[in-house]
């Protein structure tokens, strides 16, 4: 095989992995603060993509422009969802949480199926077929855009977590909610805002992924499961690890598709997951 192809595969995988990284970043935020396993996380990214589809069909709005509408919308959904559902699950048994969030997955899936049928749909963007030539390597422009936005966003979030009062509130509430409350932090408010932030983030991630993805109502859970792999791989609770894990999984997936027949290819990220955890049970970056 030509080295050119290998390099191209690695780069495409890395760029695409930034989307996984971004999903995982939000999921890490939710898990660190609430210890809730939210199986419906990916479903809201899917919802964001369908919102982009609607906005495109009705207003001819480019999916990239729909980010401006998607983010406040999903942030609002996140607020309501936490207030009405997740805040009440804080003390619940793990099984209850899994049941309820899986229930949400199927609600979103059924609503999407009723409205859009189960047929796969693609949504065009202004740059979907545009390519950039770097040396001998061809890179799809939407991949570069996705990576650039994801890199800037996760750096900004990382900066926020470490350099602002609100970010320190988030980390303190994650490390010890009782001590955080004793320091005068309104832990309930921090939780609801961080949860909404994580869901709102999907309002960016969804549209970014549109040029690379075919929309189907059933892929929500798959997205979540992939994101879980990413955050465990990166080291549960570590924000840097979540993003790095996303890149790694992106590369593994790309090589899977290059080297293995179609039906076998999807196992590569899972195989990587098992191998990393065999040698480093705490994940790549341990704890945050």
């Amino acid at each position: 095989m030509e080295p050119q192809i290998l390099l191209q595969t690695a780069i495409s995988g890395l760029l695409f992995g930034s989307i996984y990284g971004l999903i995982a970043f939000g999921l890490t935020l939710v898990f660190a603060l609430t210890r809730l396993l939210n199986f419906s996380h990916g479903s809201f990214m899917l919802l964001a993509m369908y919102i982009s589809l609607v906005l495109h069909n009705i207003f001819r709005l480019d999916p990239y422009a729909s980010i401006l509408i998607n983010v406040p919308l999903l942030f609002g959904i996140g607020l309501l969802l936490f207030r009405w559902l997740f805040a009440r699950m804080m003390e619940s048994h793990l099984i209850m949480v899994v049941q309820l969030t899986l229930g949400l997955v199927f609600i979103v899936e059924s609503l999407l199926q009723m409205t859009f049928t189960a047929d796969p749909i693609t949504v065009p963007t202004a740059i979907s077929s545009s390519k950039i030539y770097l040396g001998g390597i061809i890179v799809r422009t939407p991949l570069l855009v996705a990576f650039a936005v994801a890199a800037v966003l996760s750096s900004a979030l990382y900066w926020m977590l470490h350099r602002t009062d609100f970010g320190r509130f988030i980390r303190a509430s994650a490390q010890d909610p009782v001590a955080a409350a004793l320091m005068g932090i309104n832990v309930g408010r921090v939780r609801v805002l961080a949860f909404a932030l994580a869901i709102g983030l999907l309002g960016v991630t969804g549209p970014l992924a549109i040029p690379m993805w075919v929309l189907e109502p059933s892929i929500g859970l798959e997205l979540t499961l992939f994101a879980f792999i990413v955050i465990v791989l990166g080291g549960l609770g570590s924000f840097l690890g979540a993003f790095a894990g996303g890149l790694l999984v992106g590369v593994a997936e790309a090589f899977g598709h290059l080297l293995l027949p179609g039906t076998l290819a999807p196992i590569v990220p899972y195989a990587l997951f098992v191998i990393v955890l065999l040698f480093k049970p705490d994940g790549l970056m341990g704890e945050a």
């Binding site: 320190r168 509130f169 980390r171 303190a172 004793l182 320091m183």
Partner: peptide
């Protein structure tokens, strides 16, 4: 805390994976 009653809990209730400065800043953030 907003009324000025502040508790110093047992010392194992510091934020262990934050720096000394961050712990202090958090104390003074109300």
């Amino acid at each position: 805390v907003g009324r000025g009653i502040v508790q110093v809990p047992e010392r194992k209730r510091l934020f262990p994976r934050m720096t000394v400065l961050e712990n202090l800043l958090l104390g003074g953030s109300n």
